[in-house]
Amino acid sequence: MNGLNYILKRILQIIPVVFIISILIFLMLRAIPGDPARLVLGEKATIESIDAMREKLGLNESYIVQYGKFVKGIVSLDLGTSLTYQRPVIELLRSRVKITLMLTLISTFFSLLISFPLGYYAGKYKDSMFDQIVKSGALAAVSMPSFWIGLLLMILFGVKLRWLPVGGWGNTFIEQIRSLILPGLTMSLLTSALLIRNIRNSVVDISNMDYVDFARSKGISERAVKNRHILRNALISTVTLLLMRMAYMLGGSVIIETVFSLPGIGKLMVDSIFGRDYAVVQALVMLFAMIILMINLLTDIIYSFLDPRVKF
């Protein structure tokens, strides 16, 4: 089948990309001024332990051999040991990545909930008062610092009203969901704004198309026109945009998780940078890269199925 071929082709295309990214990340630790062994072990390390680490990291060998070992480490999920936590990096990631993924999912959910009704009605009643307000709101949302919005929500719902926790992470599932609401909402604002613009504009464009007029003149009910023709077509570009945004939300997690003290991989990244825990930083950059590549792959595949105009 052609579709299968396309997917296969796209997966094969990723291989050189992964190769380039792995080289960049490999060079990253070596680009930081100073001895990588010292960077990994920290400032207080003794000369003996640094020598041992140099041996372990293979720093005395050629770059090509070093790179080979680096790749082998990734493939066998041996990502080194965290300096701060004194635990294997992979264990650290395993317990943290769940929180960031949950945060991303919740904010995706909020984004859909906010953007579809607002975007649809803004487009349907183009240039109305409602449309103007929604458009201004979207513009404001893309121009404001997310950490400020997060802190304001925290002051309002956490400090003043005491409806939701100010920050941190819960033990039970309900507690965890509760502590994800404010950060999820904060994270969803920018995405919602972009989705609203997209949905609004596609509703405006599609409503002016001949085939929508034709559908109406055939006597199809307004509801059917909305569902079958307008929303369905607006959905294609919106899903694509949303998936792309999910990659950016991962990037935003670095800031949002810091604001709300959520122990996900975003906060781990900031903590590790400050703790000079470079083994963790390196692993996180690789993890972010892999997740983003997967999302991009998924976006292309879903897009090719949703839009029949894409040729395989």
């Binding site: 950016y248 990037g251 670095v254 991009n296």
Partner: peptide
Amino acid sequence: ILMTFPFTILVI
């Protein structure tokens, strides 16, 4: 390739 990565992550 690089532009598929979030701006924030690259800068960090």
